[in-house]
């Protein structure tokens, strides 16, 4: 027993070191902007850069739109597949996995070909149009995660009986989804939302090729031209991503409780 635990710790520490050592080194490096002693100068430099604030808030706004858009697309789709067309599920699983298989670069070149300024739907002809296209792209990129999160959430509730109970009480489909289904899978939806957010904040390829002032291209630009700030930015990005992941765990505690009792 004791022996087993010893080796378990060794393996755990070796694995942890794999993640922690580069992170600690990056953090240590980010503190060395001022010669001979540690300081947070690099962080101060990052936060005071107006381009940081502009690109970061741009990405946050795009991320929020991508989350809302993702919910509007995915929740009704999963609901109807579960309720009316369960035979479509394997197909849905496959389609939602495609963004993991097809590189973002191919997606964005496809977009540019289809929606360029001389096409029938010239999304890229204006800044707003390009922003909309960017939101669509991020919804697609996050699809593998949002679909699975929402699908898992719906598995925990009896979608069919709840739907019928609401229907017989007079509710229509929109009322059922907004007042019964969505609130009951909110935790799952939010965990999908945080994953979407984490993806959008650091995304480079699509934002760069659509030439939008997002946080990802900004990170790349700083990384190529500065010494200490990239390390500080890497740490900041880590904290944001981990914050999003942590929120998913916290939310898990508020998942709906089962009420199946026989007494």
């Amino acid at each position: 027993m004791k022996q087993n635990r010893f080796w378990a710790w060794v393996v755990f520490l070796a694995g942890a070191a794999y993640f922690v050592v580069p992170l600690a080194a990056t953090f240590e490096f980010s503190l060395r902007m001022r010669r001979d002693y540690y300081s947070f100068d690099s962080y101060a430099s990052v936060f005071s850069d107006p381009a940081f604030q502009a690109t970061f808030s741009y990405s946050v706004v795009i991320g929020l739109f991508a989350i809302v858009m993702g919910i509007v697309v995915v929740v009704p789709a999963v609901y109807f597949v579960r309720l009316r067309m369960p035979w479509l599920r394997p197909f849905m699983e496959f389609v939602t996995l495609l963004p993991l298989i097809i590189p973002a670069i191919i997606l964005v070149y496809g977009y540019i070909r289809l929606y360029n300024s001389s096409s029938i739907i010239p999304f890229t002809g204006s800044a707003l149009g390009t922003d909309i296209l960017l939101v669509f792209a991020y919804v697609t990129l996050a699809l593998p995660y949002t679909y699975r999160a929402v699908d898992t959430g719906m598995r925990t509730i009896d979608v069919q009986t709840l739907t019928e109970a609401a229907q017989i009480a007079g509710a229509n489909t929109v009322q059922i989804i907004t007042s019964i289904i969505l609130p009951n899978i909110l935790v799952a939806v939010l965990s999908g939302a945080f994953l979407t957010f984490a993806i959008v904040i650091g995304e480079f390829t699509i934002a760069s090729l659509l030439n939008r002032p997002a946080f990802g291209p900004y990170l790349q630009n700083i990384g190529a031209n500065r010494a200490y700030e990239p390390a500080a930015l890497a740490i900041i990005s880590f904290i944001i991503t981990w914050g999003a992941m942590g929120m998913i765990n916290v939310l898990g505690r508020f998942a709906p409780r089962t009420s199946a009792r026989t007494d």
Partner: peptide, 12 residues
């Protein structure tokens, strides 16, 4: 009005 075997109260 209908009552179901699984109660089907809205959990939220």
């Amino acid at each position: 009005g209908m009552v179901f075997q699984a109660y089907a109260l809205f959990p939220n």
